[in-house]
Amino acid sequence: MAEIPDEGALEAAIPETEAGRRLDQALAALFPDYSRSLLTRWLNEGRVTVDGGPARPRDKVAGGEVVAVTPEAGGEPRWEPEELPLTVLHADEDLLVIDKPAGLVVHPGAGNPSGTLVNALLYHYPELADLPRAGLVHRLDRDTTGLLVVARSRAGHTGLVADLQERRIKRQYTAVCHGVPTGGATIDAPMGRHPRDRKRMAVIRDGKPAVTRFTVAERFAAAARLDVTLETGRTHQIRVHLAHRRHPIIGDPVYGRRRAAPGRVAPAAAEAMANFPRQALHAARLALTHPRTGEELAWEAPLPADLAGLLAALRGEAAPA
């Protein structure tokens, strides 16, 4: 587990899973709260040491080395607090668990300078301004709903980042896809930027390892509800992998083309599938070991109303009140 050796400094051991990668790539995975370009600049400025000695971005790592990073003051942008609503399922001195609604961008960026989850977090929990990326250790897409854990202290941040890196934080998603898979499966397909559209991700031969597991929880005439877990955390991983298997998520505007439902599908179900306004993906369950107490904790987020309505239509039921 990474430690904070002194004020403002970061120290961690490079996991064995990073063996053979360039140091700048390993640092980006180990400290996801900082951009790779910023970490590379700090490497070139001598702000990073490996086992106490100097290091270069292109150096290969073997795993097990101890890296120390001394961030510069103001190395990342400072975001403004905004009075926005939050649904908080858990709060203690080290971490928060948020139930994120659809349409909420996680952090400011190009096209979304404000009105994000980070802005809301900084308003409700001003102490997060002292943490990298206001305590964010992972993300959800704008229109994916559900559970997201946020660090609230240095100890919490260090522990959560290490646990994510070592895949000790367990996340389960509910997805509603086009078509009906014959059964559960493991999708082991490397991912990277799409070769022609850099805004999209894709399964590519020389991509980073990406593994998704799913089971079929419920079958409908032309769709299925899946329980999905991740072994890796690539951008858009579930959406890309299910589309790769020809079972794109209903409503996905990027990886799932609008489809006409087969004739055997009831009109209400066909209409619900065609008009669902976002990807039907929900982070339903989160389980972790508390970074300070060691207690095993788990949370579940109820289905949002739109997703519950979609499932009701697919079952031939009336929409829930």
Rank of each mutant, 00 (worst) to 15 (best):
R225H: 04
E271P: 04
Y173V: 14
V228F: 07
T235I: 09
H244V: 05
I250V: 08
R168P: 09
A223Y: 00
K199G: 08
E231I: 08
P190Q: 14
L242G: 01
I204S: 07
I169L: 14
Q237H: 01
R278M: 13
V211K: 04
Q172W: 15
G233V: 08
R259A: 11
G251C: 06
V240C: 01
F276G: 04
M201G: 05
G251A: 04
Y173M: 11
V240L: 06
I187A: 04
H194R: 13
L242R: 01
H241C: 09
A270F: 12
T174R: 09
R259D: 00
I187Q: 06
D206F: 14
Y255H: 08
R205N: 03
E271A: 14
R167P: 02
V176S: 06
G183W: 13
R200Y: 08
A185Q: 11
R234S: 03
A224Y: 00
H194D: 15
A269V: 12
I204T: 05
A266I: 11
T229L: 04
G256S: 10
V254W: 09
T186V: 14
P267H: 10
G207I: 13
R205D: 09
A175D: 00
A268D: 08
G179N: 11
R258N: 07
T229E: 02
Q172G: 10
G183V: 12
R168A: 13
A269E: 06
H244Y: 15
R225E: 10
A274I: 12
R225M: 12
R258K: 14
G251D: 03
T235F: 08
R264C: 04
G179F: 02
R168D: 12
A210V: 05
H178E: 11
A189G: 06
A261T: 00
G184F: 10
R219Q: 09
H241A: 06
P181W: 05
Q172R: 14
A260L: 13
M273T: 03
P190S: 15
A243M: 03
D188R: 11
L230F: 05
A261W: 00
A243E: 02
E218L: 04
R259F: 02
Q237A: 02
A217N: 03
I250M: 01
A217H: 04
R264E: 14
F276P: 05
G263F: 09
I238K: 03
G233Q: 02
H178K: 12
H244M: 14
P181E: 02
A269K: 09
T212A: 08
P262M: 00
K170H: 15
R193P: 05
R193V: 11
V203W: 12
V180P: 01
A202F: 11
P181G: 06
C177A: 15
D227R: 14
R245V: 14
E218H: 09
V176F: 08
A221W: 02
G207L: 05
D188M: 15
I238A: 03
A221I: 10
R239V: 05
I249S: 02
A261D: 00
G256Y: 08
V203D: 07
R264H: 14
